[in-house]
Design a protein around this nucleic acid. Structure first.
Length: 349
DNA sequence: GCATCCCGCCAGCCG
DNA sequence: CGGCTGGCGGGATGC
C-alpha cells in the first residue's frame, strides 16, 4: 500500500482494460467505502476483521480503512483487538455506545450553555495506572504526549461530534459550527479548514450508518447535518451506490486508488501561506446560544420515511433495492472477487 | 466560486 | 529498523 506509487507506476493510462473507467470521486467516498465495509462484515460468523483483508476486499488503500474503522470504533461497531486486527461488534453495539457518550458528555457539562469551552482534554482520566515511564520522563510529560495525540485523533473527534448532537439540543449543525465548537478557542482558519475536512469524513460515514442526514439549515439555508440517531439499520440496509449487484459495473479492482490525477508539480515546497480569512464559523451562535434554537429544532421532524443517502446519490437505487431482498453472501462473494486489486493480492485468489 | 473531501506524504509509535 | 498508524492539508471534483 504505501508503495503504491512504486507498485503501480502509472500503468493507468491506455493500458488494456479497454474500458476507460473515468475517475469518479463520489464512488470513492468514505461513505461508500463504509457502506461496503459494513456490507462485507455485517454477517453471521464474522468476528475478526483484518485490516489487510478489508483493504484488499474493498479495493482501497489501507489508509482509508483506518479512517473508516476509527470512526466506526467511536460508535462501537468495531473494536480494536490488536495490531492489524479489529473485532466486529455490530450495530447492536451502537445504542450502548451512544448512551455512554451521552452520559460522558453530560458529566463533562458538554451540552449545556457553554459546552465548547471545555472541549479539550476531556479525557484526562482514562484509567491509566501504568506509570512505568522510562527514566527521565516524568508522568505528566508522558501523559501530555499521549494525550495530545489522542486529542487530535479521529476517534476522539468523532465522539465529540456525536456529543455535540447528543447534548446540545440542536438538530441542525453545520460543520463550520461543529468545527468551531470542537476547536475551542483557537479559530484560526487553517485549523478550521482541517477540522472541517475531518468532519466531512466523519459525516460521510455517519451518513452511511444513517446516524445523521445531510440537509440544510432551516433558515440559513446552509448545508447542515441533522441527527437521526440509531434507528436500527444503516441506510437501507444494503449498500448504497452501485457496486455489487450492478452486473456490468466497470472493473473496479483496477483502480485501487485508481488512476490518480497526478498533481502537476511535486515540489510544492513553499506555498505562499495565503490562507488568510475563511469565514470562521457562521457567526450565529447556534451552539452556545441558549434556548432560542429550540424553534429550529422541531422544524421538520423527519418528514418522510424516505432515506437520505448521505453525500452520494443512489442513482442505482432501484437496482440495489430489488435485489437487496437477498443481498446476501453471494453478492458479496462476487463483490469481493471482482474487487481484487491488482497490487499485491497473491495471498488469496 | 465555493462546498466537499480524496489522496497519499510522512511523522510517530510499536514490536 | 521495518511495518503499522493515522494526522494533515494540497488541490481535484462536484455542483
Amino acid at each position: 500500500m504505501r508503495e503504491m506509487a512504486g507498485a503501480v507506476p502509472e500503468v493507468s493510462r491506455d493500458s488494456e482494460t479497454a474500458g476507460k473507467q473515468f475517475y469518479c470521486r463520489k464512488e470513492k467516498s468514505l461513505g461508500v467505502l463504509c457502506s461496503n465495509f459494513l456490507k462485507l462484515y455485517n454477517r453471521d460468523g464474522v468476528d475478526l476483521i483484518g485490516l489487510d483483508d478489508a483493504a484488499i476486499k474493498l479495493g482501497v488503500e489501507r489508509r482509508r480503512i483506518y479512517d473508516v474503522v476509527n470512526i466506526l470504533e467511536s460508535v462501537g461497531v468495531v473494536a480494536r483487538k490488536q495490531k492489524n486486527q479489529y473485532s466486529w461488534k455490530g450495530f447492536a453495539a451502537i445504542p450502548q455506545a451512544l448512551r455512554e457518550l451521552k452520559e460522558e458528555s453530560l458529566k463533562e457539562n458538554f451540552g449545556a450553555s457553554g459546552f465548547c469551552s471545555s472541549m479539550k482534554d476531556l479525557n484526562e482520566n482514562e484509567n491509566k495506572g501504568s506509570s512505568q515511564n522510562a527514566n527521565g520522563e516524568d508522568n505528566s510529560s508522558m501523559l501530555s504526549k499521549l494525550e495530545s495525540k489522542r486529542e487530535k485523533s479521529l476517534w476522539l473527534l468523532t465522539q465529540n461530534f456525536v456529543k455535540l448532537f447528543l447534548c446540545s439540543d440542536m438538530d441542525f449543525i453545520t460543520l463550520d459550527n461543529a468545527a468551531a465548537a470542537l476547536l475551542g478557542d483557537d479559530h484560526n482558519s487553517t485549523a478550521m479548514r482541517t477540522k472541517v475536512r475531518r468532519l466531512y469524513d466523519i459525516a460521510n460515514v455517519f451518513s452511511s450508518l444513517n446516524l445523521i442526514e445531510k440537509t440544510h439549515h432551516p433558515e440559513s439555508r446552509k448545508p447542515a447535518y441533522r441527527w437521526l440517531g440509531w434507528t436500527g439499520k444503516p441506510n437501507n440496509g444494503s449498500v448504497t451506490t452501485s457496486d455489487l449487484q450492478v452486473p456490468k459495473k466497470r472493473i473496479f479492482g483496477t483502480d485501487i486508488t485508481n488512476t490518480k490525477r497526478k498533481r502537476a508539480d511535486p515540489l510544492v515546497g513553499l506555498k505562499s501561506n495565503q490562507k488568510e480569512n475563511v469565514p470562521v464559523g457562521i457567526k450565529h451562535n447556534d451552539l452556545e446560544n441558549d434556548g432560542s434554537v429550540d424553534k429550529l429544532k422541531q422544524h421538520s421532524r423527519h418528514s418522510s420515511a424516505g432515506f437520505v443517502y448521505g453525500p452520494f446519490t443512489p442513482r442505482s437505487e432501484a437496482t440495489v433495492h430489488d435485489s437487496a431482498g437477498h443481498n446476501s453472501i453471494q453478492d458479496l462473494k462476487t463483490l469481493a472477487s471482482t474487487y481484487y486489486p491488482r497490487y499485491q493480492n497473491q495471498g488469496i485468489l
